[in-house]
Amino acid sequence: MIGLYSPGHSLVHRAPMLLKLVLLSFAVLGVGLLGELWQLSLCLFAVAALFLVARIPLGAAWKQIGPILWILVVAVPLQALFAGWATAGLMAGRLLIAVALAALFTLTTTVTAVLEGSQKLLRPLRRWVDADRVGLLLALTLRCIPLVAEIVTEVIEARRARGTQGSLLALAVPVVVRSLYAADAIGEALAARGLDD
């Protein structure tokens, strides 16, 4: 998702999106109930095996999981101080497994699959919610993340090129204005593609 998707044809990629989501939820809950370090270690191995099965490139996996490791480097000693190493280890293991599984989900699932899945989920509610519209909204929200990121980068670069430094407001105003123009243009393009109904 969001350009995080790591293309592939493995079992993990091909598994139905809803199944993956349900398994992810149960796994995260289940790991929360495990109380022994050796159980968590086994789970970590299983998660690592899943990454191997999905053939996720090391770099892509690191990008997702690396940040949480930095947090753990600080959080584990702190918690060890207050609650002991065993508790700190359990917390670290649970967090790591949850983050890794969530990362595996985003790395192996396309937005289209998530859209279709959410539409299936919303079907019983179709008298009150237009599932297609919710899906479109979701897609557009995801689409806006790289777009706004790009705008922010360009505005920062333009400021640097002109040698100006300024308040956060001076950065926010051009970003908001340009985002609104982009939103307008995307709306027009959507209409042109016949999706404005």
């Binding site: 350009g3 897609a139 243009a185 995307i186 593609r193």
Partner: peptide
């Protein structure tokens, strides 16, 4: 009419809706 008339804009960025 829009099903009959395809439209290409100057800036393709504005036309891209989906991530991939």
């Amino acid at each position: 009419v829009r099903r009959q008339v395809g439209f290409i804009f100057t800036n393709p960025d504005n036309q891209i809706v989906m991530p991939t």
